[in-house]
Design a protein around this nucleic acid. Structure first.
Lengths: 196, 196, 196, 196
DNA sequence: ACATGCGGGACTGCCCGTTCAT
DNA sequence: ATGAACGGGCAGTCCCGCATGT
């Protein structure tokens, strides 16, 4: 880890922290990139070198990567959905207190339409990546319909349970601890069979 | 239907047609709102009165509304997913040849990232609307977990089957006739149970 | 002439005047568009609506248009070059004192490389427009070699005589009154024959 | 020729080749310096050390230098324009097949406005350099009007004959073999006298 | 009512000067 | 000491909302 790398990481963190503070104080939309750059003492162009878009301030985390890695570690005896559930548990457990706090803070911002659209898109993309893993695990081709169905369903369930559906204000919604519990429960339901 | 309404509809259609032509010729991103406005012989501000954002040129259709209405017409004997499947069939059948052609053309544009993010978001929103209908149909509360699970799963499956996952060029992807068939099949799978 | 038009013209003039003042005070390159916009009390985007590029502040004048019109007014007895010389005289005579002063001030800025490259390009384009007029006048096709040769030569002579060739500072060069005299003389030479 | 020099020349050639390929594939404007640098496996800053601006990828060749040298080799019996014509012939003849092919490819890019403006400016500058040679050859002062006139006229004629005047697409224009023939013919006309 | 004009903000691309790594 | 990385700055484009004028 060279000095250069360290500095980059620090700059990146600094930009994000200042941004989050400003979002808290003024709201997401009311905060301009220029303000963030000024607060973090970098130029706007530098800002965009670290975060391609303003939305990426909120989105870039590695939860999907971690979850995928955890999934691939699961023993083959588990059913697909079972493996996914365990993987999610492990992923959550891997976060420190502070990381969870930041995730919770970032999560509040998905009430902003653009952020939310991007977030869903990322989720979709991530689950598609997981489809490959599922395919391999079950010895089926990557574009197998059952594989696409199961991964799609999982993504949809996560979306449906965690996203704030009614248009609430930024303050009115938060990612509760029980959200994860609900996701788990919903995935269990999905596996049991959706008889309604 | 007043004369005013007629004129509005014509303007709206004209803007959309000119836009689609320009998208075909130059691509979505390369076409500016100003060009579209000029081609349709309206001012840019008028454009925005008809379509709140450029993306809405592609997104605004009433498929979700029609599907929801069809769902509510289904007899209570059908299972939830069965009713959804039938509703989708009826919705598709309700389109004329020309409408289908336009839908297909619009569908090509979801390869554009912004459009795609918005499209998924709309799908999510639409399915949430359907959750209410499902809840009522089954006599459960609106925020019932089973209801959210089933509707989320349906949305996820539709997404997973119809969206172009690999980053393909605009030309390389199209909404095939069999896409609908695959959605139907996948929903059948979902109902049967996802044992993988 | 509506109120709107009036206002536009005033804004345009105001921007240019403030820009010229700033150029005088700080130099062309050291003056940013933002400064100009601020001085003229408009937003940067408005600036670009009036002048597509910073260079256009300097370039947009109608000398070429006037010269072309004057050329077309010349009687057919005159030789081509003779007609051009007369047209240039008439064009110059048509400017008021103030206009000449502004032209002179703008002319100083062609010492700036980008401006100069653009200026030559405009000259080239203008002379090409004149080729059409010459062709018509002499009853030859537009792409006749003699026509292209004569108009090209005229453009080249004007360039050669009026442009500041050695890289001089902005202060060291100015468009003198005798520049026009020299152009006239050079065109006379061109007509007589270039025996060297 | 040291090893260092060799390496530099290779890097330079490599950058240019990758750039030309990308220009062919995506167009000049759509290709960014960063893409070129990446393709040539150098950093952007290295790119700018080899080519001060993106335009210089297209412009930097030594045709003017060669032509000037050839001009200075001409015997004093020849008229000025005669000497220039011979010099141009010799210069052309000095290029290999591959060099000509590259020149032709580069020439296509002068349809791009910025490139074209720069190209004309370079031509102007080159011809001004030639003015000094003409002055010396004829024993006149460097700023002699006849000298400036004749060199300016030659530059203008070359411009007029070789440049694509109508706004054509990149594909629609190319530097034909007969362009050189036309230049020669036009210069002959210039010498004979421009009676039109 | 409707269009036009203007403001503003995100974002891109070119280019340069300085700092760090080899 | 040579070269790459990095940050800064500025021109320019586009989307879109709001005020202003017709």
């Amino acid at each position: 880890v060279s000095l250069r790398e360290r500095k980059k990481a620090r700059t990146r963190a600094s930009i994000r922290e200042h941004a989050l503070r400003l979002f808290r104080e003024q709201g997401y939309q009311a905060t301009t990139v220029e303000q963030i750059a000024q607060a973090a003492e970098v130029s706007p162009s530098t800002f965009f070198r670290y975060f391609p878009t303003k939305e990426d301030l909120v989105l870039r985390d590695d939860m999907e990567t971690r979850a995928l890695a955890a999934f691939e570690r699961q023993p083959p005896e588990l059913s697909t959905i079972g493996a996914i559930r365990t993987a999610l548990h492990e992923t959550l457990a891997s976060y420190t207190q502070e990381e969870m706090a930041q995730i919770r803070e970032l999560a509040m911002l998905i009430t902003v339409p653009e952020v939310r659209a991007r977030a869903i898109d990322e989720l979709a993309r991530a689950i598609h990546a997981m489809a490959a893993a599922v395919a391999q695990r079950s010895g089926r081709p990557a574009d197998d319909l059952a594989v696409r169905t199961i991964t799609g369903a999982v993504a949809g369930v996560i979306m449906s349970v965690t996203m704030p559906w009614e248009p609430r204000t930024q303050e009115g919604w938060h990612l509760s601890d029980q959200s994860f519990g609900q996701v788990d429960e919903a995935l269990a339901l999905l596996e049991t069979g959706l008889t309604l």
